[in-house]
Amino acid sequence: MAPLLEARRLAKNYGTLRAVEEVSLSLEPGEILGLLGPNGAGKTTTVSMIAGLLAPDGGEVLLMGRPPSTNGAAKRALGLVPQDLALFDGLTAEANLRLFGALYGLGGPGLDRAVKEGLAFVGLSERASSRVKSFSGGMKRRLNLAAGLLHDPSVLLLDEPTVGVDPQSRNAIFDVLEDLRSRGKAILYTTHYMEEAERLCSRIVIMDHGRVLAEGTAPELASRLPHPTRLVAELRGGGDGEGWIGEVGKLPGFSRVSIEGGRLGATVENLAEGTSALLAFIASRGLELASLETQRPDLETVFLALTGRELRDA
């Protein structure tokens, strides 16, 4: 059976800039697909093409195996939450939701119910009649999310829905998304935060410079790395590495060396060789080893390996 939503070899150029090249992805009900990439990777452009706001220069979007109809049924099946806040500041939260519900043909008791549930869903029932301009960034983000859910779409396109929010609002948004997933919604989740993708998404597509670099679950992506291991050693008596941390970086196969609160971290090319080299170094320095653990590589490591850049500085 065809996936609920499929994008095939999407491409978009802005002048000579190839913003998106050959991006393919598919999405099933009850799944959160992470679209992960640094700023400028082409995530928003991809989402806009899927939402029908941009005409692709190449490739196609399929909804339930067919090109999106032009009669509005396809648009009704999609719920878009734009990256930039899409709310009328001068209107109340409730008035905003009523407007966006009406755009999808909701009215009467159906609209009343959808607005009420939407506000409750994102925890804004008590602020229903406050103007949006009085909201905090996190509250606006939650309302922005609610506005995309009103018409109960089966596919949700979320473009960086947690940018600039406080941890509390972020957790609230995550709870909402997990709830939606459990109700069988298909969710495309765009982000440049590793932790979010790792925590939330069943599968992840990594993008950079308009291209898909890798796709899979977080463990799958990690296992594909040639140099997958990170060592973390808790040391006593070495302070924060004054005078010797540089030497750790020079050990053969060591990279991304860090130290914080006596916890030394390093990525090694080979677990066995790396571990013995580190232990030898610790002994030679007369440091006391309190604990030693190995970590599976995180997405940060994956991204670094794929692009040679750290995601955060990208």
């Binding site: 706001l53 734009p82 899409a86 966006f100």
Partner: peptide, 10 residues
Amino acid sequence: GIWKRLLAAP
């Protein structure tokens, strides 16, 4: 993002 949201509607 408002205009996007408006245009995303049917």
